[in-house]
């Protein structure tokens, strides 16, 4: 349904020189390719600054891509104008991370939910209210609360309103950008379950961006792991979690603390050295090599000179050999 090929997004940084050239380019997304089937959930994981959100935003045209192609049901959508993009915008919706910042505090829930319908001229004014009530019901909120303002709801309820807004246009694909990371654990589980239930009911596809691997394991069918603007590993959920291939994926998984003291006190951890390098000056060769613990297994200086390409599964010289 969705096919992203070699997507790049570079941001200019610093003052422009005489010829209008910026001093530096920040390579936020650097050659990302993946596809998404109908009804499928693809997880996009990685640490802050690895380009997960930029990938999603570039994909739907919130940022113009530097290069690459994005095909939605076979049609190229990456270089469309605003008005040409409108029909696709209806079919791809987004749920944002922060339920406190993503709802207009001065609009009632009714007007927040009716706005997409108004913009896309999908319902008459009278029908809109009814539709808004149906949406609230679908996400497990009381339809009678339709005239309330966002501040009258708790964080979890607000995130449900965000979900209802994304559902308003009956989209095919919803991009969930860290939809549960701002919520408390007990509430997080409610929203994860809601997303799964809605997927089944409406046949939705999700691109699920998250840094919490345990949540991703629960909700995703396939998972792509990003590091510094590139996908380093992509696999089905079971393959990835049971047998991670890329050293970064392994480290990421081993860093997740288990809520069980027995496991915590005995398991082996891979603790990575140092920080994620700056995407302004990514390391040469494999971008992960300065922090990689398996680097010594590769002969010579290939890791620091030759960039491994993402093959079937993992972008690492070890698994490509």
């Amino acid at each position: 349904m969705l096919e992203v090929t070699d997507l790049h997004k570079h941001f200019p940084i610093g003052k422009k020189g005489l010829l209008g050239k910026p001093a530096k380019w920040l390579h936020a997304v650097d050659g990302v390719s993946f596809s998404l089937e109908k009804g499928e959930t693809l997880g996009l994981v990685g640490e802050s600054g690895c380009g997960k959100s930029t990938t999603a935003r570039t994909m739907i045209g919130l940022y113009p891509p530097t290069s690459g192609s994005v095909k939605f049901e076979g049609e190229e959508i990456s270089h469309l104008s605003r008005s040409e993009r409108a029909p696709f915008r209806r079919r791809i919706q987004m749920i944002f991370q922060d339920p406190y910042a993503s709802l207009d505090p001065r609009q009632t829930v009714a007007s927040i939910l009716a706005e997409p319908l108004k913009i896309h001229r999908l319902a008459k004014p009278r029908e809109r209210k009814l539709r808004a009530m149906q949406l609230l019901d679908a996400v497990g909120l009381n339809p009678r609360h339709i005239h309330r303002f966002p501040h009258e709801f708790s964080g979890g309820q607000r995130q449900r309103i965000g979900v209802a807004r994304a559902l308003a246009l009956e989209p095919d694909l919803i991009i969930c950008d860290e939809p549960v990371s701002a919520l408390d654990v007990s509430i997080q589980a409610q929203v994860v379950n809601l997303l799964e239930e809605l997927q089944e009911r409406f046949g939705l596809s999700y691109l699920f961006i998250a840094h919490d691997l345990a949540v991703v394991r629960h909700i995703c069918d396939r998972v792509a792991v990003m590091y510094l603007g590139k996908i380093v590993e992509i696999a089905t959920r079971d393959e990835l979690f049971e047998n991670p291939q890329h050293p970064y994926t392994k480290a990421l998984m081993s860093a997740v603390p288990h809520p069980d003291p027995k496991i915590e006190r005995t398991r082996e951890r891979i603790v990575l050295e140092g920080d994620v390098p700056s995407p302004l000056e990514p390391p040469t060769g494999c971008r992960f090599h300065p922090r990689c613990v398996e680097r010594h297994k590769v002969e010579g200086d290939r890791c620091s000179t030759v960039e491994p390409q993402l093959g079937e599964r993992s972008a690492c010289h070890l698994s490509l050999d």
């Binding site: 007990s186 589980a189 409610q190 979690f241």
Partner: peptide
């Protein structure tokens, strides 16, 4: 009990629905 049950984990059945605590604090 509710809190521990609602934590997604890296072990166990990934397809099982997460238990959640109804309502909000």
């Amino acid at each position: 009990k509710g809190l521990l049950a609602s934590v997604p984990r890296l072990t166990g059945d990934p397809n099982a629905e997460l238990d959640s605590i109804p309502g909000s604090p």
